[in-house]
Simulated assay, not measured.
Amino acid sequence: MTEPAPAARLVVLVSGSGSNLQALLDAATDPAYGARVVAVGADRTGIAGLDRAANAGVPTFVAELSAYPSRTDWDRALTAHVAEHRPDLVISAGFLKLVGPHFLAAFGDRYLNTHNSLLPAFPGMHGPRDALAYGVKVAGATLFFVDAGVDTGPIVAQVTVPVLDDDDEQTLTERIKVAERRQLVEQIGRLVRDGWTITGRKVTIP
């Protein structure tokens, strides 16, 4: 009988409530998922995401930007914190800080982020608001590998969400979150079980 492959190691970075983190924690309770969350990092204390990790028995760490003399020092410290947990993938689940060159050198081909628009349209902090203002009929979410730009890395997957006539920013954002969370869990599972290649801007999962 063949031994099952060891579960891939996920380090998840959060800045807020951690709803995407919770979805990953829940998925990882099934051994067939192929991954487990081995640590949760944050850029601030007192957030629900850290509480979710503690409740699941997952180690946590905090790297606050204000605790370091420079952003470069913070980037080095964050890199070291994450590296301690030997991740196969690092996932930004609502992490509101842009990582720097040291982090990307260590994890750039393994660092994923999810964004609440269909990139390259509407990057930045206000994807749903900007989509509504533009009058698009379809919005959605994008999962991508992070590079040195803002929401510019190679795309893993996208999911569409229709824009309704009576949508406002809150209602559209909430519907996108549901689809975004489902996509995140599904695609992380695919990546860890099947592997991937990045060729230029093209991400291929066998």
Rank of each mutant, 00 (worst) to 15 (best):
D88Y: 12
D88H: 15
L89C: 05
L89V: 12
V90N: 01
I91P: 06
I91L: 14
S92N: 14
S92I: 11
S92F: 15
G94C: 00
G94N: 02
L96N: 08
L96P: 07
K97C: 13
L98Y: 08
L98M: 12
P101S: 15
P101E: 05
F103I: 14
L104C: 02
A105V: 07
A105G: 11
F107V: 00
F107A: 03
F107M: 06
D109L: 14
R110W: 08
R110L: 04
R110S: 13
Y111T: 10
Y111S: 06
L112V: 08
N113C: 07
N113I: 03
N113A: 04
N113M: 10
T114V: 15
T114C: 06
H115S: 09
N116V: 10
S117Y: 00
L118E: 00
L119Y: 09
P120K: 01
P120I: 07
A121C: 11
A121P: 07
F122N: 05
F122W: 01
P123D: 01
P123Y: 01
P123W: 14
G124A: 05
G124Q: 00
G124W: 02
M125G: 05
M125H: 03
G127Y: 06
G127W: 04
P128G: 04
R129V: 15
R129T: 14
D130K: 15
L132A: 08
L132C: 07
A133H: 02
Y134D: 09
V136H: 02
V136I: 13
V138R: 05
A139Q: 05
A139S: 15
G140R: 03
G140C: 03
G140Y: 07
A141W: 03
